[in-house]
Design a protein around this nucleic acid. Structure first.
Lengths: 359, 359
DNA sequence: ATGAAAGCGCTAACAG
DNA sequence: CTGTTAGCGCTTTCAT
């Protein structure tokens, strides 16, 4: 029983009309152009026969696949699932399907995946991987596809993007630590290859200055990437360098986890001996031991907005490039406290801006 | 400068051959049937022109989209990302692309998504959502699509599936607790709507029996779903019932988290007053306070195997239905300990099987 | 309001 | 070894 998939022609035959009439009836663009009775009959037959329009044929014809590709470094990074869901939910509302691919920040994979996306004629590309030195963006722009960056921004080409407000977030963290009385604050920065890494570093410097604290260059350590492993390594280097400090601003939660590990390994108590802050507020950060003080970014909403930008970009290709920064929120938990050498006796070293921070 | 996408015909024109020759040259099925020189020329031209085969046209023609759909309840559940990656990595190796959709266990969404998948003519469907009473599986089978269940099994129809070995996992947990000297063990079961919920419940009963422990029906509480929230609610009911118990086997890690919350709220110390076990070993379970004793399931591998089954199923539709159970591993951490009323003085109540369990 | 015809880009069957 | 032809399923002119 070789059941062929039912086509528009089968419907036409049964409904006793021409295939093109079926197409019109089922799409009914603005009004109908098809008599109500015919439409009803066709719809009934279509449903009866279990007709499913072939999206490939439609796409081939219309040169529009109702498909959007997404490049992420690694779905397994807890940062991404909520973003992806936000994107998918919004795109789904508009009939679009999302094609996800993981790049592992591997240039060869990026290239290969981009190829696949082009072959599949995606209507646009949402990119969460853009490393600054990567040829990816150039390739994408050459491919002449609508692009939206998510959780990233571009330095060179002006591209629409949606990200969290890292600058404000780092500001909240720095002020929080300053308010607690910390003066010797270290920063575990992450790779300069990515705008989030670079921006947070720059923000750290700028807010330290604003708050009236000196940045000791020896208290900056760089992680090759945003991982626990790299965070641990960098933090060990920092400790081995022997400079005194009472707080660490980690580039993100994973890096902060690396600090937790090293602290345990060296017998340092958090927050008694050392305050540590993260970034992103990944799931379960409130369950860590101690619960992590971090910055909450509305990842799901970032996804939703990215999808909105993409939809807009598809509908009007020439439209203005917008970049959104969604608000960051400081979440104070158990990994930060007054420094061991006691709180500052006056708050005069803390900028008035400090008051603006809140949990 | 309206740059049309380059087609096989453009390549043919430049290479001065017929379009079909280009097709042959670029696909070169078994051997060539095209002279090496021509192939070289065509390949060069194609590359030069930046030709990208149109996957839609190919799919329409071949009636095969090199696309697999996946239905999951919620990507945001930490259980799924590794499974998805496993699937995607393996499928990608074979040129397939994965379409992911979240159903939120909503029947209407399931139906709608299935429609989309059929319209997009996916070559197969990987399903992680199969609730027992859902019409989804029936619909899928009616659609005559290759299916693989992942992290689920079906009761009625015989369908290929890949899941963790829940039975062995629960066995390891029960034996572990028994070895520690627990005799009054509660179970926070999850919904019977899903095989994982039901199976773990049944396994709990069966292993308790094997280990020589009595199951108090009053010590079984049901969670509507595998969530922290539901776990907390169920656990409160259990506590309010007033029966004595020293350990809780939670249906999964999220449910165990609900217990953690309620324990904190009621002033119960883990593991001093109460031992708690989870299931799945979600990311960061080792960082909870206390670190969670749980069962590790090789989620990524489950994904890989599911993809393998799917690829096999696509290649030979009639092939035998296989169901895989990947090994579970007990991970003993800080949430389990000897019960407050002291360890069993003898291990004679513990089955010899207990020795088989290991961390 | 509906039918006819063409073509989106590709491949496979059939010539030669 | 390569050219010709036809058609996958759909939409969209253009007729009527």
């Amino acid at each position: 029983m070789e059941r062929r998939t039912v086509t528009i022609r089968d419907v036409a035959e049964v409904a006793d009309v021409h295939p093109s009439t079926v197409s019109r009836a089922l799409n009914s663009r603005p009004d109908g152009m098809v008599s109500a009775a015919t439409v009803a009959r066709i719809v009934a037959v279509a449903k009866d026969l279990g007709y499913q329009p072939n999206a490939l044929a439609q796409g081939l014809r219309a040169n529009r696949t109702m498909t959007v590709g997404m490049l992420i470094p690694d779905l397994t990074n807890p940062l991404f699932p909520p973003i992806v869901r936000g994107i998918e939910d919004r795109l789904g509302e508009h009939g679009y399907t999302l094609l996800i691919a993981n790049t592992d920040n591997d240039q060869a994979k990026e290239h290969a995946i981009l190829d696949v996306m082009r072959r599949r004629r995606v209507d646009g590309l949402i990119i969460a991987t853009a490393r600054l030195e990567s040829p990816l963006l150039a390739e994408v722009m050459a491919a002449d596809l609508p692009v939206v960056l998510v959780n990233r921004t571009a330095d060179g080409p002006v591209l629409p993007s949606v990200a969290g407000d890292d600058h404000a977030g780092i500001g909240a963290v720095v002020r929080h630590l300053a308010e607690l009385g910390h003066t010797r604050i270290a920063h575990l920065a992450s790779t300069r290859e990515v705008t989030t890494g670079l921006n947070r570093y720059q923000s750290f410097l700028s807010w330290m200055d604003t708050v009236g604290l000196e940045v000791d260059p020896e208290l900056i350590a760089w992680c090759p990437w945003f991982t626990q492993q790299d965070g641990a390594t960098a933090f060990r280097q920092l400790l081995d360098a022997g400079r005194r400090f009472t707080a660490v601003v980690a580039a993100n939660d994973l890096v902060a986890m690396g600090c937790y590990d090293v602290a345990a390994e060296r017998g340092l108590r958090i927050p008694d001996d050392l305050s540590i802050t993260g970034f992103n507020d990944i799931p379960f950060a409130e369950r860590f031991s101690p619960p992590l003080t971090t910055v909450r970014i509305p990842h799901y909403q970032i996804g939703v907005k990215a999808a909105d930008l993409m939809l807009g970009s598809i509908d009007e290709p020439g439209s203005e490039v917008v970049s959104l920064r969604l608000p960051a929120e400081l979440v104070v938990r158990g990994s930060t406290a007054v420094p061991a050498d006691g709180p500052a006796t006056t708050t005069s070293t803390v900028s008035p801006l400090a008051a603006a921070s809140s949990g």
